[in-house]
Design a protein around this nucleic acid. Structure first.
Lengths: 295, 295
DNA sequence: GAGTTCTTTTCGAGTAATTAGAAATGAGGC
DNA sequence: GCCTCATTTCTAATTACTCGAAAAGAACTC
């Protein structure tokens, strides 16, 4: 189907309404009054419906006019937005940046960064790949991500430290481990179910738990792990930032380990190709860095 | 800001991609090949970015091209949708139909009707005014509604019966009235709290309860009333269709009234102005009638 | 590797649409 | 009733678009 009216004609209608009258519209559009008049006439002819009506010496919208004007404003906005996006692309901005994020990276910071990024570039989209351990790196190595936040910088890549995530060994307050009421040893832990998050890598997956618990349950998402531990299904090392709330209201309680109750994981920001990275990828990297103030 | 490219140029880009090549596009658009070539050239010049690139004798989208094509399709769809809407308006279809509905009208039927209406006319919007008793009529009389579903047809209007809503006197199973375990009299009821819905009319409001209970609570929404009764806060006559679920799982229990446990309210469909009603209002009326099969 | 075929691009001329100014029309204000 | 302000109509000119023919590129054939 072929559009019967042009963007320019819609624009004239808008101008007439906004600068009440053909004279004002002509002024605003840098066109002659007769041009505007002709344009509106074409528009109405194309649509087969009257949009403006002279009431005395004032041009007023008809009911149909009001309705169609409303939609046409949106249309024109969209047309201009596309052209702005084209301008970005012309300047070398990628249309999309693919970011692989280790799930233990604090969501709050991630969202804040994406928000900041969105305000820098209204047009570049972000494709977020949430992954675990080697899965994050595989995305990077396979060229499926332009940027990654990972705990292990893969061979041949250059990572810059971004932030440190603190893991605490926790369990539900009613959990048998807490009933022991004494510093816990590795032997104690082995007796109980540990929840670990499945490595999302396909090539050489390894689980995110490091000691061999007798019964070890593997789940796919960090959220599932948190949920399960909160329900008393086992213990786990979980990122402090993810369980701050649950610790505060007592749904989770730190395990009194003799040693190793706390673990620290350093997260790195890695470019797939630092030289070839487009401005959008660089801008996103900046936003991420800013969300992690010197720590 | 003035758009630098036209809808027609976007359409040419789409045609080239869809009918792979300039030749196919020209065929599809009923234009010459050189016209299409010229159009794409203008488009790229206007945007300042290359969209198509010749790979051998095949035209392929650049990254920017793919992205902008995607958005331009949406743009063109919107442009055509507005013109379709204009076509509707040209045929006299109102841009919006305002429907005042008595809250006791079954929501399921209402939504089914609106759904059916939406498929008849993609463009006419519905403005729904949910009101109670005289409130519904006031909307109609004041010209704030084109169509109304009301229990009381106001003077000077013509109503057609639409459906009957059955009200049952109910209370929570634990309610003292149920503890009496005998047919209840009006006197029994007066001892207890009745929940009634506030008339939404401004002029001559009267409440939707008919007998004077000692303590009568008035709420604004039917939903609040249902909720309150289900929590044992009192008794009320409620539309059977609204509480079918609560009756079934025993959260509400019909009161064993000596008389008047059931009440029937007839709902009427009323036009604000049957002669002047536009096709959209008539179509919506049809949808409503069809949702209430002979009853 | 020269010719053939298929396709896009360039060119030049013709055509349709848009534009602006002048004149005409219409609607208040005095 | 006449003056003023605003829109519409008319006409001429400019601009943008369109087309066919010819040129240029790229793959395919022999």
């Amino acid at each position: 189907m072929r559009p019967r009216v042009t963007l320019e004609q819609w624009r004239m209608l808008q101008a007439v309404v906004d600068h009440d009258g053909y004279a004002g519209a002509a002024e605003a559009l840098s066109k002659s009054v007769s041009t505007v008049s002709y344009g509106i006439r074409r528009l109405e002819a194309g649509l087969g419906v009257a949009l403006l009506e002279m009431q005395g010496r004032r041009a007023v919208l008809t009911t149909a006019g009001r309705e169609l004007l409303r939609r046409s404003r949106y249309l024109l906005d969209e047309a201009l937005a596309i052209e702005r996006a084209a301008g970005m692309l012309a300047k070398g901005w990628e249309p999309v940046v693919r970011l692989a994020v280790e799930v233990i990276f604090p969501q709050e910071r991630l969202l804040a960064s994406l928000d900041a990024f969105a305000s820098v570039t209204g047009t570049t989209r972000v494709e977020l790949i949430e992954s675990v351990l080697s899965g994050t790196n595989e995305q990077l190595v396979a060229g499926k991500a332009d940027l990654a936040i990972t705990a292990m910088v893969p061979q041949g890549f250059l990572g810059e430290p971004l932030t440190t995530v603190e893991f605490i060994a926790v369990a539900h307050p009613e959990h048998p481990l807490h009933a022991l009421s004494r510093p816990l040893t590795q032997r104690d832990l082995r007796q109980h179910r540990q929840l670990v998050v499945r490595d999302s890598g396909l090539r050489e997956p390894r689980d995110a738990g490091w000691l061999g618990a007798e019964q070890r349950w593997t789940v796919s998402h960090l959220a599932t792990s948190v949920e399960a531990v909160a329900r008393g299904m086992g213990f786990a090392w979980l990122p402090r930032h993810r369980i701050a709330g649950l610790l505060a209201d007592g749904q989770l309680q730190p395990l009194p380990l003799a040693e190793g109750a706390l673990r620290h994981v350093e997260l790195y920001l890695v470019f797939a190709d630092r030289e070839d990275a487009g401005p959008a990828a660089r801008a996103l990297a900046d936003c991420l860095r800013r969300s992690c103030p010197a720590d």
